[in-house]
Structure formats: structure tokens, C-alpha cells
């Protein structure tokens, strides 16, 4: 049941991702890069409002797919759902890392971030690669949505907003184009948030967490594992 939900969700979000790419990103491929960020933002608002309009304002609850079991190991309290989420997330990230680093498709993706204009000259089918990248990214985001809702089973139209921003922060903190970096970035952000709340005054959590982000990026201007921009980056 759980696996079926996960796979179907991933397929559906992949389809949405491809549609969004077609509608909102492809026409803007030669525009300033930030214009695409704005259409992306607008697509987000549209999807959220459509959700609100179609499903109504009520919060939805996420059905229990796996019965909760609580484990106690010494002072540490774990639930089977959380253990599984961490495991599955690591597995997916490892698979993604392999895909980006070892396959031809991954090589094309990486090449695209270096120089997008020259790629067609090398015989790379740019459109196919971009569509696949979007499908992959959206499918993984869909998987994250399922896992997140299993752990925190209250659904609302705007639930993705803050998580989305945090994901962006974590990815960039790790360095663009580095999957281990993104994992580490996410871990650092989460670690700071939890530990500030646990050890200091919890009201200062955001202040401290984002100050640390700012400091890290001031002293490591290209994130933890990122490389400086190539000189001819299209901005």
C-alpha cells in the first residue's frame, strides 16, 4: 500500500513537473534566468490556490499507511516511520547521486549547468535532458511530500511553502550541483534548528539558524561543496 502510494505519487508529480516545464520554463529559456524563477513562483501560487479552490479550505488528514511503533533505545525514542523515512531518503539520494555522476544522462545534466549553449553542438538532445531533469526533480519532491505527510499527517494547501524555501537554502548551502552537499546542507540546517531550540532559547531559533547560514556563505562563498561559477554563466 505504502509503496504503491509512493510510486503513483512520484509518477503523477513527474507528469505535473513536465507540464510545468513545458508551460512555464521552456518559453523562458533564453530570458534572464530570474524570469523563470518568477514564473516558477506563479506556478506555485496557481497550484496552491487551485488546491484551495478544488478541495476547499478544510485541512485534510493523511491516512495512516504504516502503523506507528515506538522504539526506545536507552534515552533515544524512535518511531518506525521516522527510521524508514531517513533510510528511504538516503537511498533515494544515493540513487540520484549515482545517476548524476555515473550515467550519460547525469553527465548531460552536469554539462548543461556549465555551458548550456554549446550542448546541442555536442549532439546532446537538450529538450529531452531538461524534461527528464524536471520529471526526476518533481518525482523526488513528490516522494518527499509523501514521506513528510506520513510523519506529519496534517495537509493544507500552503504546506509546501516553507519547506520549499528551506530546501532551496539547504541545497545552496551545500553547493550547487552537489548532492552530498545538499544532504549535508539539509542536515546542518535541521541540526541547527533543533539544537538551538533544545539548548538555547527557542524563540531565537530562526535568528541563530539563518545567521549561521549567512556566516557559512560569507566564508565559503560557493557553499560547502560547490565550485565557483564558470565565467560565462548565463544570468
Amino acid at each position: 500500500m505504502f509503496l504503491l502510494t509512493l510510486v503513483v505519487t512520484m509518477l503523477l508529480t513527474a507528469v505535473i513537473g513536465v507540464l510545468v516545464e513545458r508551460v512555464a520554463y521552456r518559453p523562458l529559456r533564453d530570458a534572464p534566468r530570474a524570469s523563470a524563477a518568477i514564473t516558477g513562483l506563479m506556478v506555485g501560487i496557481f497550484l496552491e490556490t487551485a488546491n484551495l479552490a478544488l478541495l476547499g479550505a478544510s485541512r485534510k488528514t493523511f491516512p495512516t499507511l504504516l502503523e506507528d511503533t515506538v522504539y526506545r533505545l536507552g534515552g533515544v525514542i524512535l518511531t518506525n516511520v521516522k527510521v524508514m523515512i531517513v533510510g528511504l531518503a538516503l537511498l533515494l539520494m544515493w540513487a540520484l547521486h549515482l545517476l548524476v555522476q555515473k550515467t550519460k544522462l547525469g553527465m548531460a545534466m552536469r554539462a548543461m549547468s556549465v555551458d548550456y549553449a554549446i550542448l546541442p553542438l555536442m549532439g546532446v538532445p537538450v529538450n529531452t535532458v531538461i524534461v527528464l531533469t524536471f520529471a526526476l526533480g518533481s518525482a523526488l519532491a513528490g516522494a518527499a511530500g509523501v514521506l513528510f505527510s506520513m510523519a506529519y499527517p496534517v495537509l493544507e494547501p500552503y504546506m509546501g511553502l516553507l519547506i520549499g524555501w528551506k530546501a532551496f537554502v539547504a541545497a545552496i548551502l551545500g553547493g550547487r550541483g552537489s548532492i552530498p552537499g545538499a544532504v549535508l546542507g539539509g542536515f546542518i540546517l535541521g541540526f541547527i534548528e533543533i539544537f538551538v531550540a533544545a539548548l538555547f532559547v527557542s524563540t531565537l531559533r530562526d535568528l541563530i539558524a539563518y545567521s549561521v547560514v549567512l556566516l557559512i556563505l560569507t566564508y565559503r562563498p560557493y557553499g560547502l561543496f560547490g565550485e565557483p561559477y564558470s565565467a560565462r554563466l548565463r544570468l
Partner: peptide, 17 residues
């Protein structure tokens, strides 16, 4: 020392701070 996405995140962090 930095630009692009990295600077975008710095400016984002500023808003949260």
C-alpha cells in the same frame, strides 16, 4: 566574493534574520 544563487540565499537569510 559570491553571486547568483548563493547571494540569493544570503539575501533570503537576511529576511529571516
Amino acid at each position: 566574493r559570491t553571486r547568483g544563487d548563493y547571494l540569493a540565499i544570503i539575501s533570503l537569510a537576511y529576511v529571516f534574520i
